[in-house]
């Protein structure tokens, strides 16, 4: 059993490393894998290979950082989606359900268009603050509305609608066409601005967040028959709700503040993972994380290469290629009533 787990873990690491290497090699200019390897060796332990400094710079400063952030983001969003779907017992739950992406966009436009913070706030920080404010409001509303799954979902819808409307209001009232297009682009998700400092934020957040969720795998299993059944199985439901909703909200808010709200991953990857390994969270969460990471790196590669000379928003790619792939998985699922 433990051997199988170790083997599975090793295999997962290999797949992830391969995806990261592809992410670093493929782009507008194709850089051979051995150059990628040598760049990493130079940078990580000063191996001192002689390389074209431009190639080395592109690989290290842009592509590796970008692939790492894509992986962190994909893993975090997929795990958040899986956790929320289980806690809310709703197959349609995704990381943005609790108002986070709507709040982030309001925060971002407040900074970018209204000039909130007087130049001291970055777009990212504005988005993060907006996301957390919106989540706080949704959480408060859910508490008042009775804490049940339906109450939480409805509170999330109300919060999301409110902040979406606020964003539209600000954009239509104050933005010029150029700004509006920029915001639109940002909202669909965008990895082009990603550099190493973003890795320093995204990677630890994704790692810690996913580990916190995986540490609660057994408790998440116990929610299969609802919160009452979980309580009867010895789960402290309130505490669990605070930890899980808090952790997923923080992870999602930070990812959104770095790359915008990339859709689809958090909704669909968990279902793909369930189709592969079943519903037990010990397997479901790590597999969701891996699939999410690899899928996001692949989507990023596609977004950079599919139209030569143009980078498409990654959110467009995730849905454009993810939806058909998911349809295939759905159709192969054994039919039950």
């Amino acid at each position: 059993m433990t051997w199988r787990r170790l083997a599975a873990g090793g295999l997962a690491m290999l797949v992830l490393l391969a995806a990261l290497a592809m992410g670093a090699a493929i782009g507008e200019t194709r850089i051979p894998l051995d150059v990628v390897g040598k760049t990493l060796a130079n940078r990580l332990w000063g191996a001192g290979y002689g390389l074209d400094p431009i190639d080395e710079g592109v690989v290290w400063h842009y592509r590796v950082a970008r692939a790492l952030v894509a992986a962190a983001c994909g893993a975090a969003l997929a795990v958040c989606g899986a956790v929320l779907q289980s806690m809310l017992r709703n197959a349609l739950a995704d990381p943005y359900l609790l108002g986070i992406s709507a709040g982030a966009s309001s925060g971002a436009v407040s900074v970018a268009i209204l000039g909130l913070g007087g130049g001291f706030l970055s777009l990212s920080l504005g988005a993060l603050i907006g996301a957390l404010v919106a989540f706080g409001l949704v959480a408060l509303l859910a508490l008042k509305a009775g804490r049940g799954a339906a109450a939480i979902i409805l509170a999330g819808i109300a919060g999301s609608q409110l902040f979406s409307a606020l964003t539209s209001f600000i954009v239509t009232k104050s933005a010029n066409a150029e700004q509006a297009r920029g915001i639109m682009f940002w909202l669909l998700g965008n990895l082009s601005g990603v550099r190493w400092p973003d890795v320093g934020l995204a990677l630890p957040v994704a790692l810690i967040g996913c580990l916190v969720c995986i540490a609660h795998a057994r408790a998440l299993d116990a929610f299969a028959f609802g919160a009452n059944a979980a309580a009867a199985l010895g789960i402290a439901v309130r505490r669990m709700q605070v930890i899980m909703f808090g952790a997923t909200a923080l992870m999602t808010a930070i990812m959104v503040s770095i790359v915008g709200s990339i859709g689809f991953v958090g909704l669909v990857i968990p279902h793909a993972a369930r189709a592969l390994v079943g519903v037990r969270h010990h397997a479901l969460l790590p597999v969701s994380a891996l699939l999410g990471a690899v899928f996001m790196i692949a989507a990023d590669i596609l977004s950079r290469t599919i139209i030569p000379g143009q980078v498409l928003p990654i959110g467009v790619m995730t849905a454009l290629f993810g939806a058909p792939a998911f349809a295939v998985i759905l159709m192969q699922r054994p039919v039950t009533r």
Partner: peptide, 30 residues
């Protein structure tokens, strides 16, 4: 503590359903 209660008291609710595709054995393992 909830956990200590659950080691002594088990409850079968009037209605408890799930949309998850867990197996019969997994449901009992809970």
């Amino acid at each position: 503590r909830r956990r200590d209660v659950a080691r002594v008291i088990a409850l079968v609710e009037q209605q408890a359903e799930t949309g998850e595709r867990l197996t019969a054995r997994q449901a009992v393992k809970l």
